[in-house]
Design a protein around this nucleic acid. Structure first.
Lengths: 172, 172
DNA sequence: GGTTTTATGTCAGCCATGTTGACCTTAATT
DNA sequence: AATTAAGGTCAACATGGCTGACATAAAACC
């Protein structure tokens, strides 16, 4: 910001810098999801299952509507995945105690185990990257990713991080 | 690294920090690709087309094999997309001058225009995020994303950034 | 010079995951 | 009693991965 450079070169640098970001995002996201994808494939699941499991694990007792709001997909798409997860015993649905139309979602033991395994491999990757890059870099990383979000997402993303008060545990 | 904290809390913080990273990656990637996806949808294209266009634009004269190595998909998947792009006049294939089995890939004028448009929207998003976050943050961002890559990808990603010597322009 | 390897293409079919649209049920709210 | 909200279901379609099988042309090798 402080230095004044010849406009031509500044623009060139800027474009290169931006392209570098675009490419890094592509490669990093691919590799970041790759390991989890392999584990999921063993269980005949895909990324969609992973996302559902992840956010249910993060927000026990979340409603379908709330989950839809996080994932930004149609209820039909989510429904397919949820049915499969209930079928395979990874997710449990409980009728809402106050509003009985709602189905509150919880991970079962199996679901929790899978979630841990998946989060662990992804966590390891982050732990390595964070360790190598150092604390300052991590702050910058988070700051930039925050800035890449749509403004509507910035709300949500914060909410997830702040973690809704979980709606009780399923009585079993 | 330097500070010694009660193990319990340190682990809790660590896990929260890692989950924050995982979630930010998910949301940021989704929003980052969202705008481009809309533009592509207008033209009846998807992300796969975008990736091909992007990397051909970045490496004029790239061979199908090289492109496959970057994208990490099967030749059948790429072939489908490339055929479509040739059909719609976004990409041109030229038989390799030295090895005539190769088809060197180039963007046409139309292809270049689309590439610019797509890179521009994504670039704008990055430019905003970079500007808001500041130079130090950007460095950290790049460092962490680098660290998230598979080691094989680290090579490639560097190569793309360093940009192969382009193989001539198509003679028209 | 004949064999093997490489680059590429093509056809067919499968699967996961997104979409839209239509329609239904149940229950809370007004 | 009527409306709204939560949720499900069915059907159909598109995209973009995948595998497997097979074809062709040319380079490279022995």
């Amino acid at each position: 910001m402080a230095d004044i450079k010849p406009i031509g070169k500044a623009l060139f640098l800027r474009e290169e810098e931006l392209r570098r970001g675009i490419e890094l995002m592509f490669f990093a996201y691919r590799d970041f999801t790759g390991e989890a994808d392999s584990i999921l494939a063993e269980q005949n699941m895909g990324r969609a299952h992973h996302r559902a499991i992840y956010f249910i694990g993060r927000n026990p007792g979340i409603t379908v509507s709330e989950l839809l709001a996080i994932l930004n997909i149609t209820k039909q798409s989510l429904s397919r995945v949820l049915s499969a997860l209930v079928e395979t015993g990874h997710v449990e649905q409980q009728t809402g105690p106050e509003d009985r139309r709602q189905r509150l979602l919880y991970l079962t033991k199996t679901g929790t185990e899978l979630e841990s395994r998946l989060t662990e491999v992804q966590g390891r990757r982050f732990a390595r990257a964070y360790r190598e890059a150092g604390m300052t870099a991590v702050e910058g990383f988070q700051k930039v990713l925050q800035g890449l979000l749509d403004s509507e997402t910035q709300q949500q993303a914060g909410d997830v991080a702040r973690s809704r008060p979980p709606r009780g545990t399923p009585d079993r």
